[in-house]
């Protein structure tokens, strides 16, 4: 068609025939979803999307996806994508129910559309594709966010600083020690030292899978930082293989006290603090 400015014949059809388009859209979408949503649910979803779309089609042209009139529709699509993702639908299934609009529109164009109408349909079709991509992007963005949050939580979770006794802290390290981890451990340890006024800290590396020069460097940095604040550190939980690796790599722990077991380190810390653990006198073994 193309006459009367840039108005698009397909857009005019879509905007003037709400009920037919929504019905066709809903049935096409429901068919593609394999009947996992009820017809009524699909109709209400699709109806809401149509209403968001209709405003932007008022002037009879194919709108830009980024147009301000489509703000609400984009929000609707993002919301749809999130709800569907929570219900366990794949992003493709969500996108397909948007693409179903094309089927619906095509069915409204009559038996034998003219080539001009087809050209207009292609333009409209591109626009629908962009709408479908919005649902995909929202899905991917939500995923990325979830992954980032989990990584952060994992970092926090895996670095507890516990108080063993008045003035004695313990940091049980688990997993791999990279520089980001070390930074978190160091910050948390130093902050807790300050808050609890502890004189001694035990860094336990029983759960650290491997110690190489890099990891040793990170450990030493933490110990030096704690020393600068006036707290002595003991490194404990050194497994036999790790002791051999450390020697093999030529890593020097200098004057930092190292112990094989955390209990040994705790004993040392207690005795340095002038404390003694004894059995209660009236205790009887059952």
């Amino acid at each position: 068609m193309g006459e009367g400015g840039d108005s698009n014949a397909v857009v005019l059809q879509v905007k003037d025939r709400r009920d037919e388009v929504v019905a066709a859209w809903a049935s096409s979408a429901a068919a593609r979803m394999g009947g996992r949503l009820s017809a009524a649910e699909v109709t209400s979803e699709v109806g809401a999307l149509y209403d968001g779309l209709a405003g932007a089609l008022a002037d009879g042209r194919v709108p830009e996806v980024s147009a301000p009139e489509l703000d609400e529709l984009r929000a609707q699509l993002a919301e749809l994508s999130r709800t569907r993702a929570r219900q366990g639908y794949t992003p493709s299934e969500t996108a397909v129910s948007v693409f179903a609009l094309k089927d619906a529109v095509l069915s409204q164009l009559g038996e034998r559309p003219t080539p001009e109408v087809y050209a207009d349909f292609v333009d409209f079709s591109k626009f629908v594709d962009d709408l479908g991509l919005i649902t995909f992007e929202t899905y991917a963005a939500a995923r990325e966010e979830a992954i980032a949050n989990q990584a952060e939580e994992l970092l926090e979770l895996s670095t507890p600083v516990v108080k063993l006794w008045d003035g004695i802290l313990a940091v049980p390290l688990v997993g791999t020690l990279d520089s980001a981890r070390t930074q978190v451990v160091m910050e948390k340890l130093l902050q807790t030292l300050l808050e609890t006024e502890s004189d001694r800290a035990i860094i336990d590396i029983t759960g650290v899978s491997a110690v190489d020069t890099q990891v040793a460097q990170h450990l030493l940095k933490t110990v030096v930082a704690a020393r600068l604040m006036g707290t002595d550190c003991i490194i404990s939980g050194i497994r036999p293989q790790i002791a051999q690796t450390v020697v093999g790599l030529g890593i020097e722990f200098g004057d930092i006290v190292t112990k094989a077991k955390m209990s040994d380190a705790f004993k040392l810390a207690l005795s340095e603090a002038g404390l003694v653990v004894t059995a209660a006198r009236n205790h009887t073994d059952a």
Binding site: E187, L190, L194, E197, V224, A225, L228, M229
Partner: peptide, 29 residues
Amino acid sequence: VGMRPAVAMTLVDLGLSLGGVRTALNVEK
């Protein structure tokens, strides 16, 4: 005495360990 955590971390990153200087958490200690 009383070095802040952020200061301690900066010094370590600079490679300074204040060798020979004794440290404590606060004036009392």
